[in-house]
């Protein structure tokens, strides 16, 4: 009974974390369907509408949601004794394992590519105007790569649980 409750709670956290994290990407994809590069004027004037919008945007929750999602997913696999077989893409756990590998790439992309560049764009880390403009392009591409990768990951999450017969 406790085991089932633990797994249901972990799965719930996994869903909620994924929605908060990837929901950020999807919201941006819908509200800004085309890339609009920041300009020197946007970044040099703290009162410019785009700089104000940037500063008011949420910068922490989705990053920690990515850790919650990854951690709860890994916990479920570990609790079931599936972690090693999933990560080695063994048998019917291959879809889930592949999803976890791609999701791991996404977490690394978010924390080690997007966030360090975003800190430059926002001015949390000192950088020249040129560097900040270049960093804003990197953050955009990094986010879009994660948006693209989330599509197969969501498929593999579903296939791993409900579509084993398709790949077994």
């Amino acid at each position: 009974m406790e085991g089932i409750l633990f797994e249901v709670l972990a799965r719930w956290l996994h869903f909620v974390g994924a929605l908060v994290w990837v929901g950020h990407n999807y919201a941006t994809a819908v509200t800004r369907p085309r890339y609009m590069p920041l300009t020197a004027a946007d970044l040099s004037d703290p009162e410019s509408p785009r700089q104000r919008a940037l500063m008011q945007r949420e910068h922490g929750t989705f990053r920690y949601a990515s850790l919650l999602t990854w951690g709860s997913g890994a916990l479920i696999l570990w609790y079931r004794g599936w972690l090693v077989d999933a990560l080695s893409l063994h048998g019917s756990l291959a879809p889930l394992g592949l999803g976890m590998w791609i999701a791991t790439l996404m977490v690394c992309n978010l924390w080690f590519v997007l966030w360090p560049h975003q800190k430059r764009v926002l001015g949390f880390v000192p950088a020249s105007l040129d560097e900040r403009l270049r960093a804003s392009r990197v953050t955009f591409l990094s986010a879009r790569v994660n948006t693209m990768l989330s599509i197969p990951v969501l498929f593999l999450m579903g296939a791993g649980t409900h579509g084993i017969a398709l790949f077994g």
């Binding site: 994809a29 369907p33 890339y35 291959a94 599509i151 197969p152 498929f155 398709l166």
Partner: peptide, 30 residues
């Protein structure tokens, strides 16, 4: 290549294409 990601619609098409390719590979490997 990365410029393709400037468009949300193309990003989704690339994601769906990648999904189909990976699903096909998993099916073949299974």
């Amino acid at each position: 290549m990365l410029k393709l990601l400037d468009s949300s619609a193309v990003t989704v098409v690339l994601g769906v294409t990648l999904t189909i390719v990976l699903a096909a590979l998993l099916r073949l490997a299974g």
